[in-house]
Write a protein that binds this DNA or RNA. Structure first.
Length: 377
DNA sequence: ATTAATGATTAGAT
DNA sequence: ATCTAATCATTAAT
């Protein structure tokens, strides 16, 4: 709108003001033109000077009294429905640092402190992070300017409307309570607009986050050293490749990676090894040869626990569980006897290895006999 | 240009 | 909380 705040008023509303739709009211107000303002001015003057004015005023008072009751009865307070979501969005924007006023840590050495991690990551949060922050601050800037725009528009509109109502109060009864209610309505309308803004800002931030902070997008292969260390451990503990927390820390230290990277690696390795053991046999022989004299591996349980070197032989898989190996050996034998389709003699042996699923709550007695039932599947 | 390898994330189970 | 299994997204290899 033209922000022309003429303290004039539109043509007086119909004498029986049934409860108006706020949307209608807003639209009507929006539709005011300068011309209509002038007309209204003229009419206002005419009304003010009309000799019947006191009579009209009292009639309007009567009508109002009736309608006010009706309005009070029908009008409930604003919807508390949106409040929850608004709160959520606000919290999120706050957490994401969008709502805050451009965080500028005056402690200058803070920037230098981030690079002080010795021997850790080479450079991974250098450019990418600043890029992310630039984008984020761009979003924040847009957000704030839009927000400011909305608030200003809201203020202007509110004063405009209150002026109009005050002006009209000379001709028809307008209680302060009524004005206040009108202002609330306006504010709630603008609030819903603000919520849309917040919503879309949230979406933008989420997109940005997944675009930049998702580490999958900046994957880089481990160093030779790291894979070396990890593979050594894996193949020398093939029977139970689940490093303890301590072992993980050790591996992480040796390989120059983090503990969770070690965990990820073992998770991937286990599942991929199990899924296609043949592809890993070459690798296996290499690394088991390297660690031939390793005394850490529990050897001699169920024969050759840590030596998967013989490809077409019956076993060598990761079957023997470190704890209760004996019963499982039978399982291994049985599975190896199964007719293996497509010549993948080794593929079948991975089934049911490693992390055993616990049988249901029943007592563990009589376990040896049940191996057969397993073989029937 | 495809495909394989690979690190990270996710859902779901325990 | 940790594991499996599936999946994603990037990098290396063809």
């Amino acid at each position: 709108m033209d922000a022309q705040q003429h303290p004039s008023h539109p043509p007086p509303p119909p004498s029986a003001p049934r409860r108006p739709d706020t949307a209608d009211v807003l639209q009507q107000i929006m539709a005011i033109t300068d011309q209509s303002l002038d007309e209204a001015q003229a009419r206002k003057h005419a009304l003010n000077c009309h000799r019947m004015k006191p009579a009209l005023f009292s009639v309007l008072c009567e009508i109002k009294e009736k309608t006010v009751m009706r309005v009070r009865g029908t009008q409930d307070e604003g919807p508390p429905d949106d409040d929850a979501q608004l709160l959520r969005l606000d919290n999120m924007l706050l957490a994401e640092g969008v709502s805050r006023p451009e965080r500028q840590g005056r402690g200058a050495p803070a920037a230098a402190a981030s690079t002080a991690t010795p021997g850790g990551c080479p450079n991974d949060n250098g450019l990418e992070h600043s890029d992310y922050r630039a984008k984020l601050s761009q979003i924040r800037q847009i957000y704030h300017s839009e927000l400011e725009k909305y608030e200003q528009a809201c203020r202007e509109f509110t004063t405009h409307v209150t002026n109009l109502l005050r002006e009209q109060s000379r001709i028809r009864p307008v209680s302060p309570r009524e004005i206040e209610r009108m202002v609330r309505v306006i504010h709630s309308k603008f609030n819903s607009i603000q919520m849309q803004l917040k919503q879309s800002t949230c979406e933008a931030v989420m997109t940005l986050r997944s675009r930049f902070l998702d580490a999958r997008r900046k994957r880089q292969n481990f160093s030779k050293q790291a894979t070396e260390v990890l593979n050594e451990y894996f193949y020398s503990h093939l029977s139970n490749p689940y490093p303890s927390e301590e072992a993980k820390e050790e591996l992480a230290r040796k390989g120059g990676i983090t503990v969770s990277q070690v965990s990820n690696w073992f998770g991937n390795k286990r599942i991929r090894y199990k899924k296609n053991m043949r592809k890993f046999q070459e690798e296996a022989t290499i690394y088991t040869a390297k660690t031939a004299g390793d005394p850490t591996e529990v050897r001699g349980q169920g024969g050759q626990a840590s030596c998967p070197s013989m490809p077409s032989s019956s076993s060598s898989g990761p079957f023997p569980l470190s704890s209760t190996g004996d019963a499982l050996i039978t399982l291994q034998t049985l599975t190896s006897l199964q007719p293996s389709p497509e010549g993948g003699s080794l593929l079948s042996q991975a089934r049911g290895s490693w992390q055993v699923k616990r049988m249901s709550t029943t007592s563990p007695v009589g376990d040896p006999g049940h191996v057969i039932s397993d073989a029937t599947n």
